[in-house]
Simulated scan of single mutants.
Amino acid sequence: MQPFLSLLLALHVSLSTGNSFQKWTDAHGKVYQSEEERHSRSLIYAKNQLLVEKLSVADPDVVYDISGPFADLETSEFTSKLMSKRTVPQILEELREHSDQQSLPDSFDWEPKGLVAPVRNQKALGSCWAVSTAETVEGQLAKATGKLVPLSPEQLIECDASSDSTCAGGKGCADCGMFGGWPYLAYQFLQKAGGMFSEADWPYFKEGMFPCMPKGYSKALCGNHDDLYCRANSTKGQGPKDLCHATSGFTTPVSGWRSLSRNEEELAAQLIQFGPASVLIVADGLQFYHSGVFTGGLLGCQPDPSEGILGLDHAVLMVGFGKDHALFGHIKPYWRLKNSWGTSWGEQGYFRLERGTGRCGVNLAATVARVETSVVVV
């Protein structure tokens, strides 16, 4: 950071933010290792405060806010810590589900219908793919049985080393533990493994738990993470219980998956037909989102045309859709999406995204799990 800019930001911290940084750190339980780090984070906080003000002017229909959990992160840090920047599959068009055009309701939402579990917090791990996978399986299970049972993303993080050398034109795709992965491979892994455990039986990463990379992960596609500090015996999957190799105890089997339409009218009909869907998006513009129908922020939130779906970096759960009636009679159709950044972000952990324009690539890689109801074992 240039000295003059640092001086301006330091002045902004002292004059404009007052005690807001201290209040923010208290609210989020932030503890820094040194005064130097604290000062550095306060400057980033001040810079982000200016960015939020700029976003609010440029995009007045959306509320951006500095009070969320990522206010002390540079955009590059935010992207590297929480996004799954991995190659995604070019799913063959003939494998996609298509629906007859139907008259859609103005709004629909699976959350009040009991198919959506509480919002999770993936923390500083690239585990969105595992969370999104678990949540679409949860929806299928609840749809089949009437019982909403939170399932275990940790099972996928610790055990799933799936890879597909044929996807993305031969570039390859892989599930890489806490460094990213892809729901379609996770469905296939769960089908082969025999099923998915509940979150009660296999909790998510917590303090004192240091999982290793899944056995046999692709170093070519995931990078070499052999230097990762890990302690397999601190986990249920890789430790003494060895649940990664379990043959029983599953909450539900997974019998396969569906790839949904890119046509957003069809996709809305399929959401009603099949249940909550895992979708992949470009998410770096959502760091300071607080509420409203997101239409792209400063940069428009569209995948790089040269990358297509290869530029998608975050997995979330599509739970519904609706129409926002803004000022002067303007109507904004939207998707309602469940994130995995905790309830202090967005609309209690959810966000609304413009529908019908392919915003953030939301329609490019939507999938749902298949659950064989005749052998469900909840």
Rank of each mutant, 00 (worst) to 15 (best):
Ser165Gly: 15
Ser165Tyr: 15
Ser165His: 15
Ser165Thr: 15
Ser165Ala: 14
Ser165Pro: 15
Thr166Gly: 12
Thr166Tyr: 09
Thr166Met: 11
Thr166Trp: 11
Cys167Tyr: 01
Cys167Leu: 04
Cys167Met: 03
Cys167Lys: 06
Cys167Gln: 01
Cys167Thr: 01
Cys167Pro: 02
Cys167Asp: 01
Ala168Thr: 07
Ala168Trp: 03
Ala168Ser: 09
Gly169Asp: 10
Gly169Lys: 08
Gly169His: 11
Gly170Phe: 07
Gly170Gln: 03
Lys171Asn: 13
Lys171Trp: 07
Lys171Ser: 11
Lys171Gln: 14
Gly172Glu: 01
Gly172Phe: 10
Gly172His: 08
Gly172Tyr: 05
Gly172Met: 09
Gly172Ser: 09
Cys173Pro: 03
Cys173Asn: 04
Cys173Arg: 01
Cys173Ser: 07
Cys173Asp: 03
Cys173Leu: 10
Cys173Gln: 00
Ala174Trp: 03
Ala174Lys: 01
Ala174Tyr: 02
Ala174Asn: 06
Asp175Pro: 10
Asp175Phe: 13
Asp175Met: 14
Asp175Ile: 14
Asp175Tyr: 13
Asp175Asn: 13
Asp175Cys: 13
Cys176Glu: 04
Cys176Met: 03
Cys176Arg: 02
Cys176Ser: 05
Cys176Pro: 00
Gly177Asn: 05
Gly177Ser: 09
Gly177Thr: 09
Gly177Phe: 02
Gly177Arg: 00
Met178His: 10
Met178Ala: 14
Phe179Ser: 08
Phe179Met: 13
Gly180Ser: 00
Gly180Val: 05
Gly180Cys: 09
Gly181Met: 01
Gly181Glu: 00
Gly181Ala: 10
Gly181Ser: 08
Gly181Arg: 05
Trp182Val: 15
Trp182Met: 12
Trp182Phe: 15
Trp182Gln: 13
Trp182Thr: 12
Pro183Thr: 12
Pro183Asn: 12
Pro183Cys: 12
Pro183Asp: 13
Tyr184Asn: 11
Tyr184Thr: 13
Tyr184Lys: 10
Tyr184Asp: 13
Leu185Ala: 06
Leu185Tyr: 05
Leu185Glu: 02
Leu185Ser: 09
Leu185Phe: 05
Leu185His: 07
Leu185Cys: 11
Ala186Glu: 05
Ala186Ile: 07
Ala186Gln: 05
Ala186Met: 12
Ala186Pro: 11
Ala186Asp: 07
Ala186Phe: 03
Tyr187Glu: 05
Tyr187Phe: 13
Tyr187Cys: 05
Tyr187Pro: 08
Gln188Arg: 14
Gln188Gly: 13
Gln188Ala: 15
Gln188Cys: 14
Gln188Glu: 14
Gln188Pro: 11
Gln188Ser: 14
Phe189Gly: 06
Phe189Ser: 08
Phe189His: 04
Phe189Gln: 01
Phe189Lys: 07
Leu190Thr: 02
Leu190Cys: 10
Leu190His: 03
Leu190Asn: 00
Leu190Pro: 02
Leu190Glu: 00
Leu190Tyr: 04
Leu190Ile: 09
Leu190Ala: 03
Gln191Met: 14
Gln191Ala: 15
Lys192Arg: 15
Ala193Cys: 11
Gly194Met: 09
Gly194Phe: 06
Gly194Glu: 09
Gly194Trp: 07
Gly195Asp: 01
Met196Trp: 10
Met196Phe: 07
Met196Lys: 08
Met196Thr: 03
Phe197His: 06
Phe197Pro: 00
Phe197Asn: 01
Ser198His: 05
Ser198Asn: 07
Glu199Tyr: 06
Glu199Met: 01
Glu199Leu: 08
Glu199Ile: 03
Glu199Val: 04
Glu199Ala: 04
Glu199Asn: 06
Glu199His: 06
